[in-house]
Structure formats: C-alpha cells, structure tokens
Simulated assay, not measured.
Amino acid sequence: MSPFAMRRRHAFAAGLALPFARTAFAQGDYPSRPVTVVIGFTPAGLTDTMTRIIAGRMGRELGQNLVVENRPGAATSIASAHVAQARADGYTLLMGTASLAINPALQPSLPPRDPRQDLAPVGMAYESPFLLIVRADLPIRDLADFVAHARAHPGRIEMGSSGTGATNHLLIAMLAREAGIQLEHIPYRGAAAALTDLRGGRIAATWATPPDAMPLVGDGTARALAVSSRERMRTLPDVPAAPETLPGVHGTFWQGLFAPPGTPEPVLARLGAALDAATRDPEIVRRAEESGVVMRPGDGGALRAYLASETERWSTLIRAANIRAE
C-alpha cells in the first residue's frame, strides 16, 4: 500500500472518531474560508487561465473565494504530491491534468505513484484537443495523405512535440503505431519552440492546441489535417476528427478537480455541485470554445473511471512504444 493510500485509511479512521466535524460538514458549514486550488503549471498558460475562470464561478456557488496557487515542476508531480499530502478538509484542491494518467508509467518514481488511490476525484472540468498540422509546402492534404507520405518516406517525417512524455508526443507515437508508419520524433522544451521550427521549415509536422496552431494555418504556413478528439470540434467543423481515418488515434489534454484522500463525502459533493455549475455555465462554455477548449461536465465517479481508462491506455502505449523519460 502506498504512503498516500495508508494516509487515506488513517484519515478515514480519524473521521469516524470525529462525529462533530463530520456533522458540521453535513450541515453545510463548508466552506467557511477561502479554498486553494493548486495547479502544476506557471501563470498565464491555458491551464492557469481556465482554472481561474472555473474557480471564479465555483466561488460564486460556494460563497467563498477559490485562490489559484501555481506549483510547477517535475511533470506536475510537485503540485499533485502537495495536494495528496494536504489535510483532507476540502481547503486544498488540485486541478489535475492528463499527466496523472501518464506519469505512473513514464516516471513511476514521481509522487503520487498511484493517483487513482492517492487522490479523491471531485469531477471533470474540460479537455483541449490537438490539431495535427503539417507544413503547407508538403504534398499532404488530409490524414490519409499523411500516412501515405510517411509510408513512402519512412523515418523522414520529423514531428515536433512539447517534450518527451507530453500528450502531443504520445499522440505522435499513437499515430505511428496505429498507421504502421515510422516518424522521427523531435522533442522540444514547450510547444512554442516546435511551432517556431515548423514555421522555419526545420520540422514537417506537430500536434498543437488550436490557439497555437490556427495562426500558422491562417497565414498559410501550415495545413490542419485532423483534430485529436473523438469527434469534430464545433468551432472547427471542417477539420476531420482523427478517428474518422484511424479509429485508434485520439487523445486530449484534459483536466479534472481532485481533493486529498479521505476528504468527507459531503465536502466532495458540495465541490462537485459547484464544479458542475461552472462547467455548464454558458458564458464559460463560450469563452472556453474561443480558446479551443471543450467543457466536459462529469461527477467524481466519471472522473475516477476516466482516470482509470486513461491510465491503462497511455500505459499500454508507453510500454509498447518503449517511451522513456528524458
């Protein structure tokens, strides 16, 4: 049993010994002070922006401010471990990302080693698909063309990613595996550097978020071939979903809200209701779509099931493709 799982058991036992505290939660006294939402990214990025939007709306529902705290580093594990070890009182939360499903297989030494046991799911938040874009000077018009071109030039299509183990790197590996093609992966330290090299003609393609990709598509530098979600995006209806051509190719950068293990169920339920209101708010949905983000309402059970399925899917790919952390 992991240290976090043991702590969860101890927290539960302590909860049984404190009926007064449990009753206070049930009576709706929570929250009586501001709540901290921790994220594993620096300020001003997509995660930071969306978390602040969601937190603001949740605060209106809860009657307390939700304060976003940035704790970047170690593939988001600094933030995740901090929340996993925090007091299970609902005042320290994690806006977790797809890295929770990736790290256990890619970097198993990073805490929390099993987020499925070491964090308590509150609910789903949103997902951000990626666009497969290629340089416009290449004779590639759609995903089928891309596969045919790669087969004709094995190992000569250089694809950039945000770094080894990033979601868009795993999408490159998934595309190669599902299509039976050889692609040359070029890892960068962030998406901006990969896009700069694509614009400069030094790489052929990349998976990029819509806000990052569309300027290159708009000025004719790149061509959008597919979106990595299971279905087409409402804001980009002319860009096919990758599964329309290759059913096994799909994956997004997703986020969900988590609490420390042992957090009382009434607190999780109250947080979940506030999160659900935020993810369904028409104004937030509109603002999200403008940023290439799709809101994905879902309760704690849905997030638990999704984390389990994503962990299994990415773990299988990482093992099959022999992907190792840098």
Results as ranks from 00 to 15, higher is better:
11 A>V: 10
38 V>R: 01
232 R>N: 08
247 P>A: 09
266 P>M: 07
171 L>G: 03
238 D>C: 02
232 R>G: 04
266 P>Q: 08
250 H>R: 03
193 A>P: 06
22 R>L: 12
153 H>N: 15
57 R>T: 08
40 G>L: 03
111 P>A: 15
28 G>T: 11
72 P>E: 08
127 E>G: 02
268 L>N: 02
16 L>C: 10
110 L>S: 14
203 I>A: 04
280 R>I: 13
228 S>H: 00
311 T>V: 02
17 A>Y: 09
216 L>K: 05
47 T>D: 13
208 A>Y: 10
266 P>C: 05
323 I>T: 03
204 A>M: 13
260 P>Y: 01
187 P>N: 06
125 A>N: 02
319 R>K: 09
106 L>I: 05
28 G>F: 08
193 A>M: 13
168 N>L: 06
299 D>Y: 02
135 R>D: 01
265 E>I: 05
9 R>L: 15
263 T>P: 13
296 R>P: 00
2 S>W: 10
13 A>K: 13
104 P>Y: 12
125 A>K: 04
319 R>V: 00
54 I>E: 07
307 L>P: 00
113 R>L: 07
27 Q>P: 02
81 A>P: 13
29 D>T: 14
254 W>F: 13
81 A>W: 13
284 I>H: 01
168 N>V: 02
32 S>W: 00
295 M>W: 00
118 D>R: 08
85 Q>F: 04
124 M>A: 09
301 G>N: 13
139 P>T: 02
119 L>E: 10
15 G>H: 06
151 R>V: 01
254 W>Y: 12
22 R>C: 03
171 L>Q: 02
272 G>F: 04
162 S>Y: 06
143 L>R: 00
4 F>Y: 10
135 R>T: 01
37 V>M: 15
186 I>M: 08
318 I>V: 10
150 A>Y: 03
228 S>Q: 03
51 T>I: 14
168 N>D: 15
70 N>S: 11
194 A>T: 07
68 V>I: 13
31 P>E: 14
86 A>V: 08
229 S>A: 15
